[in-house]
Design a protein around this nucleic acid. Structure first.
Lengths: 107, 107
DNA sequence: CTGGATCCTGAACGATACTG
DNA sequence: CAGTATCGTTCAGGATCCAG
């Protein structure tokens, strides 16, 4: 682990700290099948500010959930994708979505 | 839904708001098989203060993820358990745990 | 025993402008 | 295009004491 996990009392606690936060779940889900550039992510994650996007991407990268590939071109190009560890989370985020959709429709 | 969900951009977002927070995952997991009293929960969720325990339990109850049963006795007795909706989350929290344990051991 | 009431701090998040 | 920098705000969470 690269990020500072404050103090996990158990595995559930630990996991939530790594994918908690306002945007991490959404970003991981958006990246589930493919490579996206910074600008594409910015459009996909509606409402996020550049600061939060950068910050969140850095944390996810430090946690080794996403991979950041820089192309040395002009204009600059950077692509983000899931690491294997990140991909392991997709089934579970998928479960979350299913549950969330069901709940939302029953309000 | 009874609780105030600020604004969910998608189902993932929505789900995270409902089981996010510092203790919700742990509490749901602890309640996975059985009824626990307030004091038992307080001991089980190491480090939680009475205020946070009460607050979290109220949110979970308002979200209909847990059920609160009051026994009219002296001294007071209150038992908490999962609702059906709450139980639906257990498989997924279980996935989280598995993933979290694997990650923790590979640091 | 099961909480409620208060006060407070820090971290997360947001708005806006700027840069290589 | 892909970010930084700076400043401001909000709110979850914590400490402590009190109550039915």
């Amino acid at each position: 682990m690269k990020n500072k996990i404050k103090k996990a009392h158990c595995a559930v606690d630990y996991a939530f700290q790594r994918i908690g936060g306002k945007y991490k779940g959404r970003i991981l889900w958006i990246l589930r099948d493919g490579f996206l550039r910074y600008g594409e992510l910015k459009r996909a994650v509606v409402g996020i500010t550049p600061k939060m996007l950068t910050q969140t991407l850095k944390e996810l990268e430090a946690d080794e959930l996403i991979f950041r590939k820089v192309y040395l071109e002009v204009p600059p190009k950077v692509e983000y994708s899931l690491t294997d560890t990140g991909k392991e989370l997709i089934p579970f985020i998928s479960l979350m979505r299913t549950w969330g959709e069901k709940q939302m429709s029953s309000d």
